[in-house]
Design a protein around this nucleic acid. Structure first.
Length: 436
RNA sequence: GUGGUCGUAGCUCAGCUGGUAGAGCACCGGGUUGUGGUCCCGGGGGUCGCGGGUUCAAGUCCCGUCGAUCACCCCA
């Protein structure tokens, strides 16, 4: 029986997932991110220190647990890859070269109620850059470029990365005269859910805003642009604050850099805030065209205060692809296909049981040259053996004989072939993953 | 974690106001002594998610539980 929130795919789906992971990994490496894997568990106090205590963390218990085990010794499964990474950097900071760029593709666990595209165990693909003391801003502009390249390499619908900067919001609210900027942010974040009227009312009630201040917050949240025009629109609201200027400048850099390399990829969207409270500047979210209602499939941001050791700070910026969500949604819409359900490219037909050894030799010769091959399970009628391949989407059946022949069962074409030299078209060598 | 909807063969579903299960597709075999995907014939397969209750009798009513899904929460 399945366990709620712990999805298990079928082989064709796993083939698609692996192909996605191959593309993600190679793109990350093209940008110079180093591979890293951290343990599945962290001490509970690490997991909860910066995040909220309301985090749905899975705890690890030993069957023979000591009753008076201390709470700080309690282990929990990590719910993201950023917090463990920050811990890892602090722990190994003497052995790492900074700025340190790494990617991490691992399972994470959250004890929330599952729904479509929301799981309790799921795969994330993260990139982060962490530096000692200060981290140059241009790394914030690199994140969308990497993700944009990943998206371009995958057979998925168009995606738009929505970007904002918390300094813009905080500076704006402060310049407006609102002291509790965090509360304003929390309320404004609900704009899409509850609408502008209720947000305005909540700002007045819970953040001490006047009607005019609330209106200004909403005006800021409405701003959205695919180019640098958002700067003037913010300025037109007449609020001034040094932090606001800093944020606008940063956000502008992200948008302009993206437009130079990948036009249409990024959109400044001043209403997005992101849930995680450790972000201090740039924040990213991603909408997949046609799947907007299922939430962000890629997100992250800048965190200047997540990690520190003594007097040394380790600011970072990162972004994470929700691989399981992305695949779960696309699977749900039947939006992806694979050409076959197994890696096999050639089935070697077995004419009779006494010829099996010869068939094994043929398969070996093919494999030696990198052609995935398997010998038919039984010396059934050739029709059955062809059917065996057809059911799995395997494109070729090899018939031992004098001479050997190989049949492309899609076209029916059958030609003489030598196991030491025959080569299938490159496109047939491995399962082909594509949009349906 | 809170609340709503749903759960019958591998898949899509039918089963009236309760009387102890069906179709199509898929699968297996044969027609086709050996090169498939069409067609024809035949066949296997379900303790009706699971557990309990009401009833002479439950797939059909009630409760619980598990799973899927939706909203909240949170977020990939």
């Amino acid at each position: 029986m399945p366990i709620s929130g712990f999805p298990e795919w079928l082989p064709p789906q796993r083939i698609i997932e692996q192909r996605f992971l191959d593309k993600i990994r190679s793109t990350f490496e093209l940008y110079g991110y180093a591979p890293l894997e951290t343990r599945a568990v962290e001490p509970l106090d690490i997991l909860l220190s910066k995040g909220e205590t309301s985090k749905e963390v899975y705890l690890l218990h030993r069957l023979q647990e000591d009753e008076n085990a201390k709470r700080e010794d309690q282990l929990g499964l990590h719910f993201d890859l950023t917090v463990p990474f920050a811990r890892y950097v602090v722990e190994n900071n003497g052995k790492l070269q900074f700025p340190f760029k790494r990617y991490q593709i691992q399972k994470v666990w959250r004890g929330e109620r599952p729904q479509e595209g929301r799981y309790r165990e799921f795969l994330q693909a993260d990139i982060d850059v962490i530096n000692r003391d200060t981290l140059p801003f241009h790394f914030d502009t690199e994140m969308p470029l990497v993700i944009g390249d990943v998206f371009r390499s995958l057979p998925i619908p168009e995606a738009v990365i929505l970007v904002n900067n918390r300094k813009v919001c905080e500076g704006f609210y402060r310049g407006l005269g609102l002291a509790d900027t965090a509360q304003v942010l929390r309320v404004v974040d609900k704009l899409d859910k509850i609408g502008p009227e209720k947000v305005a009312a909540a700002l007045v009630e819970t953040a001490g805003a006047t009607d005019a201040q609330a209106a200004a917050c909403l005006a800021l949240a409405e701003i959205s642009a695919t180019d640098g025009s958002f700067v003037d629109r913010v300025r037109a609201l007449g609020v001034t604050d040094p932090l606001l200027d800093e944020g606008l400048n940063e956000l502008l850099q992200v948008v302009e850099t993206a437009n130079e390399h990948n036009p249409g990829l990024v959109r400044a969207e001043l209403k997005i805030a992101r849930g995680l409270d450790y972000y201090t500047g740039t924040v990213y979210e991603t909408q997949l065209k046609g799947y907007e209602r299922f939430g962000s499939i890629t997100s992250g941001g800048r965190y200047d205060n997540l990690a520190s050791a003594g007097n040394t700070r380790f600011p970072g910026v990162g972004i994470s692809i929700g691989v399981s969500r992305l695949l779960g949604l696309l699977f749900g819409q039947d939006a992806l296909t694979v050409s076959r359900s197994v890696p096999t490219c050639v089935v070697v037909a077995v004419p009779s049981d006494d010829k099996r050894a010869e068939c094994d030799r043929i398969a070996s010769a093919l494999r030696r040259r990198g052609i995935p091959a398997e010998v038919a399970p039984t010396a059934a009628k050739f029709g059955k053996q062809i059917q065996f391949a057809d059911r799995r989407g395997i494109p070729y059946v090899w018939f031992p004989g004098e001479p050997d022949t190989v049949k492309d069962i899609r076209s029916g074409e059958q030609i003489e072939a030598d196991a030491d030299s025959w080569q299938p078209p490159a496109a047939d060598l491995h399962p082909d993953v594509s949009a349906r």
